[in-house]
Simulated assay, not measured.
Amino acid sequence: MSLRVPARTWGGRTTEERRAERRARLIDAALDGWIENGWAAVTMRGVCQRTALNDRYFYEHFADRDDLLGATWDAVRTEVFADLTAIFTGHLELPPLDILRAAVTRAVRLQSDDNGRARILLADHAGSAVLEQRRKTMLTDATDLLVVTSRPYLRQDADELEFRMSTLVGIGGFIELLTAWRTGAMDIDGDRIIEHTCRLGALLATEYLPPEVITPAG
């Protein structure tokens, strides 16, 4: 019978807890710098200065700057997707277009949130292969989320491949519209984006959802 050796603690925290805290601090520092000056301004030296950690602790968690950028993106993407997934799964009693409106509204509000975290997902990533690939993957993941949550409402004769293609086009356009709004390329406001996107969603729904689901009785 082996005896379990208690984890050593410093200041009431284990080694793993302290490592996790340092990693979180480095990511938060990268995110702060990213929001203030863009991803290109995020450097190993900069995040170490912000956290008062030396480069040994940086390389304890990240192979290089690209690794840090990817981890920072992933942290925000996970947070945003958890938020949106909760809307889809937490309002199943509502008609699907009402759920869509709630999700679209939340996505728009996240882009104007004071903390600015979600905005890094739609920023200009040209020049960073790591971030450009993650943006492409985000589009696919968002499409998967909407397809999966819509599946119970689809007409029995609906072509799911066609629905997926239409959803991909819709989400891609929505992301580009949000980007144009955030960069000032289009003089619009968040409420107009919500209304326009939901109107397009309703048109798309007529192709794939039965009428009673689109406009429930009562």
Rank of each mutant, 00 (worst) to 15 (best):
M1N: 00
M1L: 09
L3Y: 08
R4S: 09
T9Y: 07
R13C: 08
E16T: 15
R19P: 09
R22E: 15
L26Q: 03
D28E: 15
A29D: 05
A29Y: 03
A30G: 05
L31W: 07
D32K: 10
G33F: 02
W34D: 07
I35A: 14
G38I: 11
V42D: 05
T43A: 05
R45A: 13
V47F: 00
V47K: 02
Q49G: 09
Q49C: 06
A52D: 13
A52P: 00
R56C: 03
R56F: 10
F62G: 00
R65D: 00
D67F: 00
L68K: 07
L68C: 09
T72Q: 04
T72A: 08
W73E: 09
W73D: 06
F81D: 02
D83N: 01
D83P: 01
T85K: 11
I87C: 04
T89K: 08
G90N: 08
L92A: 13
L97P: 10
D98Y: 14
R101N: 09
A102L: 14
A103D: 04
V104G: 06
V104R: 01
R109A: 12
R109W: 01
L110S: 01
R117V: 04
R117E: 14
A118T: 08
I120S: 07
L122S: 12
L122K: 10
D124C: 13
H125D: 02
A129K: 07
V130E: 00
L131N: 03
E132S: 04
E132D: 03
R134S: 11
M138W: 11
M138C: 05
T140F: 12
D141H: 07
V148S: 14
T149S: 12
S150H: 05
P152W: 12
L154M: 12
Q156N: 11
Q156F: 11
L161T: 08
M165R: 12
M165W: 07
M165K: 05
L168K: 09
G172R: 12
E176Y: 03
L177E: 02
L177H: 09
L178E: 02
W181T: 09
W181A: 02
A185S: 15
D189N: 14
D191F: 07
D191G: 15
I193S: 04
T197S: 13
L203M: 06
L204A: 13
E207T: 14
L209P: 00
P210D: 04
E212T: 14
E212I: 12
I214N: 07
T215F: 13
